[in-house]
Design a protein around this nucleic acid. Structure first.
Length: 228
DNA sequence: AATAAGGACAACCGCTCGGAC
DNA sequence: TGTCCGAGCGGTTGTCCTTAT
């Protein structure tokens, strides 16, 4: 990219260097400034970009904001079962290589995948009372969650069940390690905290709030701007 | 209705790597 | 060859929202 270096003379630079940097959540005005600047000049050279755009942010902060939120091709919304499956498989292969994993999920950012992993997968690991990097959790992924997701992907779309538990599965897992027990297609971990479901994300099709049938979707708390 | 607890996600921090000089 | 700086990555923290009590 070509940042208009002539405009960023040393006087301006030294003035801005003494300026206090902003932190915390980005405002709509800052987003607009960043987006307009990138639309005009392209991305890259983040430190000088931040200065020349007049943003009181670090280059790092600008880069992160752009990559994780403002980029036009960034996908927002729930992680689909297909994406969950891919994340599980790729994590089995590469571990916490979030950016590498993100490359295989178009529109998803490493930050988003990392957050997904921490909030969903680590939660289940905690419920199983095992370390997220343990063999047990990896086996659980490989032999239970992934097959369930595959099953879920191949299953025709069905209306929400009325009586039977949606987490009930008829699939048999011939390779299930002995340290993972099954009951009606479910893991039998120590009792989870009230209101949570082991099968929720990985095998069951039940919404987050099964009592109301509502599926909570959130597209972030803040404005999402796009360059269209 | 108020509030505490937990969840989800945005943002920051520290470290490493690679290129320019 | 060594140093500096920008960029990227993974880990962690902070903030706000939802849900439960």
């Amino acid at each position: 990219m070509e940042v208009e270096g002539r405009e960023c003379n040393s006087a301006i630079q030294s003035e801005e260097e003494t300026m206090e940097l902003r932190r915390g959540p980005w405002t709509v005005e800052e987003d607009m400034t960043l987006m307009n600047f990138i639309a005009k000049h392209g991305e890259g050279r983040w430190n000088s970009l931040a200065r020349c755009a007049g943003l009181k942010r670090t280059g790092k902060s600008c880069r992160l904001r752009w990559l994780n939120y403002l980029r036009p091709d960034v996908r927002r919304g729930n992680i689909t079962p297909e994406e969950q499956l891919l994340i599980l498989e790729l994590h089995c292969r590469w571990g916490n290589r979030w950016s590498k994993i993100a490359q295989h999920l178009p529109g998803r950012t490493d930050n988003e995948i990392k957050n997904y992993w921490r909030t969903r997968v680590q939660k289940h690991a905690k419920q199983l009372q095992c370390d997220v990097n343990s063999k047990q959790i990896k086996d659980t992924m490989r032999y239970l969650w992934i097959p369930r997701l595959v099953e879920r992907l191949h299953a025709p779309p069905t209306p929400p069940p009325t009586g039977s538990s949606p987490t009930t599965s008829t699939t048999t897992y011939h390779h299930l390690p002995t340290n993972i027990s099954m009951s009606s297609g479910q893991l039998v971990p120590p009792p989870p905290p009230p209101g949570t479901s082991i099968g929720g994300d990985y095998g069951g099709v039940q919404p987050e709030n099964s009592s109301t049938g509502l599926h909570r979707t959130r597209l972030g708390r803040r404005f999402h701007l796009s360059l269209t």
